[in-house]
Design a protein around this nucleic acid. Structure first.
Ligand SMILES: [Mn+2]
Ligand SMILES: [Mn+2]
Ligand SMILES: [Zn+2]
Ligand SMILES: [Zn+2]
Lengths: 143, 143
DNA sequence: AAGCAATTGAAAATGAATATCAAAAGCAGG
DNA sequence: CCTGCTTTTGATATTCATTTTCAATTGCTT
């Protein structure tokens, strides 16, 4: 799975004529090693502790490349920081976001997706993408 | 309806011990006179043309009060600006957002709302609020 | 009118993200 | 392995929306 993603990125880089750099390799390794929904700052700090030379601008730039390459997706929750999550080809899910502990629970619901299509059709609207975020308290935080 | 909202705000202000100020009256008038989904900057500029003395910090502060009072809701789309929309007591809707012309179409769907409750229940999650935004092209912009 | 706390507006601060740009590094072709 | 050209990088400056600060003003109570 990790090798798969590295290959995906290398193919993308090749097709775009991007150069292979130490920084991009490192950032990809660290991104692939994180759990879901890392903020740029979080990832940058992790990388910096082992590779002090790497600048945050490069992390910002490289994560955008990962999105272009199709192996990451931007997730904008309401804390003012852009986060990135892993994405497998064709996969989609939405989020339950706990405002107590910041936990994020992922879910998929066919019926909701389908209803969205119906609503869009009813308005002659062509869907490009969507986001459904449910905010509240997770089981732990309801206490 | 406008009088209703003014009353709502006055009640809120009274209950919180807030003072009645010229600025708040003006900002409320202008907010109530706008259509849906005004950005702070848009509202501020409108107000400033007739009332040059009013500062943008006051507009920012006052819109937050309107949210607290229950007559406005924050809408964060992806253009980096916070927008505010009117909200009637208890009413809820979601948005189709056209990335071509920035039009916003509102919709409500009982079934989707219900399915969200089910999903939350399945995870022991307590919903506080949610946002569903569908991005794409409206009928006009599809060409 | 006096006193006091809330409010305001100008200006400074914040913070995430982007732009700038000189130095460094990757990638040919020879 | 050099040479030359182009991309990439990292430090730094910049942007832009929003928040904070704080002295001056205002609203409200007595
Ligand atoms: Mn996710
Ligand atoms: Mn709306
Ligand atoms: Zn939680
Ligand atoms: Zn449109």
């Amino acid at each position: 799975m990790i090798l798969e993603k590295k290959k995906t990125f290398n193919n993308f880089a090749a097709s775009k004529g991007l150069r292979s750099t130490r920084q991009r390799d490192i950032i990809l390794d660290y991104f692939l090693a994180t759990r879901q929904h890392v903020s740029v700052e979080e990832l940058y700090l992790k990388i910096k502790s082992a590779h002090p030379g790497i600048g945050s601008a490069t992390v910002y730039r490289t994560l955008k490349l990962f999105v272009e390459a199709g192996l990451a997706r931007e997730v904008l929750l309401h804390d003012g920081q852009t986060r990135y999550e892993h994405v497998m080809a064709g996969e989609h899910h939405d989020h339950l976001v706990c405002t107590g502990c910041n936990a994020i629970i992922e879910f998929e619901n066919e019926t909701i997706e389908h209803l969205q299509d119906e609503i869009a059709a009813r308005h002659g609207f062509l869907i490009r993408n969507h986001k459904l975020e449910i905010y509240g308290l997770c089981a732990n935080c309801r206490g």
